[in-house]
């Protein structure tokens, strides 16, 4: 087989549609969540270790940095969940047309903005 086969879709040279941004952010949020799992396991471990550990996790979120990290984690989780639910809906054949795909992508963006604001309101 030829080693340097031509690539007919060079995404570096084309203007990306909204669906492409929704898709790449799904991947970015997924990679971030892989690291978030470690953070959440550490929180679970500490909070269950002793009453002092539990209290330290609770008071830890008094610090703005810790709260911001948790907010960012929840934002990545919210984004990845909503974009994932869109995938599941599309697996059933809903929203697969060009217009449907664009509408779905916009709905994902709008839903995530609301969820991230709600998460912020919960934490602060």
């Amino acid at each position: 087989m030829q080693k340097q086969r031509p690539v007919n879709l060079d995404i570096g040279t084309i203007k990306l549609p909204v669906t492409a941004y929704i898709s790449i952010l799904h991947r970015v949020s997924g990679v971030i969540l892989f690291l978030v799992v470690g953070f959440l396991l550490w929180l679970l471990d500490t909070s269950l270790s002793s009453p002092e550990g539990f209290a330290s996790v609770q008071s830890g979120f008094d610090s703005p940095l810790a709260r911001f990290v948790l907010w960012g984690s929840l934002a990545a989780l919210a984004y990845h969940s909503v974009a994932g639910i869109r995938h599941l809906i599309m697996d059933f054949g809903v929203g697969e047309s060009l217009e449907g795909g664009v509408l779905g992508a916009k709905l994902v963006a709008a839903t995530v903005v609301v969820l991230v604001l709600l998460a912020g309101a919960w934490l602060w």
Binding site: R27, G30, L33, F34, V37
Partner: peptide
């Protein structure tokens, strides 16, 4: 995560 990161 295995399936997702493998794809990426």
């Amino acid at each position: 995560a295995w399936i997702g990161l493998w794809s990426v």
